[in-house]
Design a protein around this nucleic acid. Structure first.
Lengths: 213, 213
DNA sequence: GTTGTAGGAGTACGTAGTACGCCTACAACG
DNA sequence: CGTTGTAGGCGTACTACGTACTCCTACAAC
């Protein structure tokens, strides 16, 4: 029947351990430091040994992204008003990513293939559906939320008004960019949490208005 | 006084020509094809010659981004209702980037340093200010718009619901991601233009509500 | 023990970015 | 019109990356 001649040697690593090692390297040395050699060293194994577990560097990056994202609780909060549910889900992603800022540049490229993000999307849709969104309205709502969350998280960690970028903008030639300079100064009074939440609330208000009519 | 002993040889390239060459390579061969050697070849000059004009590859990328973005008209449309002004400005950026999709992955990293984006931001703020936004409310409004535009453009070109990603998601196991599958199917009826505009309208509605109260 | 499979390590190749040094073209001066 | 100083242009070469390939070895079933 089945020629069960021999069982191969058991695997000594797990994808999870690999992802943890890569994430440790990423947190320590940043994106530029995330090389196959560095991850191999982190695991105490050879560089090429990694290729027993991932096809290429791209797949390793995907593992890291997934490792960060699958810590978000993707159970849809259906026991609260729907705007609070969306806020909660968005906040969970923001929080998980905030713990590992160096993965931010990797997110856009690996978002599609991440099961964790798919589960998250399913949860968002559950909340939206429960709220009464259907059809194309739900498509637009979902896309808008996803776009905002992705964009806002990037803004936060690559610094435009928040973070180091603020100072740079505040120092702009005031005669050429008077409003930017003024806004950058005002931004000092708004924490990153409030910026993220404030923008999200704008979207949620817009969505609520769609439900009323 | 000034020992004006000798005038150096005049430059044979301009940053603009360099940027055009790099953009041509980017459009033709994609981001992975954008190498110093390829751009040198495109210009008919040597690889190292580029370093007379840029400090490193990063700066060359910044030139490309700037080349794409400085085609957007950044005069604030103040002669229309403010939501239309914002829509116009957002659409201009989306349109400019859409002409060179390969620059999308470069945008987040180079956004801070781009004079064109700063001018654009100044225009957005002019519209918002004219509409009546001030202080922290204006900060949040601006950040939200910027975040949405950046995020939505990336979603559009890296494909989540729109583009090739849609098919992938529509083919998901329906029992595990029923709502995502359904939404992906619904998304077929919504063009990218409508998705972008629809989400933006949600934000604008939310903003309008802030002005009423 | 024997055997088949797959793991692990090391070597080596192609290509990227870029430091460095030589030669040369040009503008200002005599 | 020759001289001269500066910077441009080019080529070479170094380093680090991703990764293909080849050996050797550890293990589970017989």
């Amino acid at each position: 029947m089945y020629a069960v001649k021999a069982m191969p040697r058991p695997r000594s690593l797990t994808p999870a351990r690999l992802a943890d090692a890569a994430l440790a390297v990423l947190d320590r040395d940043g994106l530029a430091g995330l090389t196959m050699r560095a991850v191999g060293a982190q695991l105490g194994t050879s560089t090429m040994g990694l290729y027993r577990y991932v096809a290429d560097r791209d797949e390793l990056e995907a593992l890291v992204v997934e490792r960060v994202l699958d810590r978000v609780d993707t159970r849809p909060p259906l026991d609260v008003p729907w705007p609070d549910g969306v806020r909660e889900l968005a906040g969970r992603v923001r929080h998980a990513v905030g713990a590992h800022p160096a993965v931010v540049p990797l997110l856009p490229a690996h978002r599609h293939r991440s099961p964790a993000i798919l589960r998250w999307g399913e949860a968002v849709l559950a909340v939206l559906t429960r709220a009464g969104f259907t059809g194309t309205g739900r498509v637009v709502a979902f896309r808008a939320l996803l776009g905002y969350v992705v964009g806002a998280i990037q803004m936060e960690h690559l610094g435009a008004l928040a973070g180091p970028g603020t100072a740079a903008i505040a120092a702009l030639p005031r005669d050429e960019f008077p409003l930017l300079a003024e806004t950058a100064r005002d931004a000092g009074a708004v924490g990153p949490e409030d910026e993220f939440g404030g923008g999200l609330d704008l979207l949620l208000d817009g969505l609520a208005r769609r439900l009323d009519t």
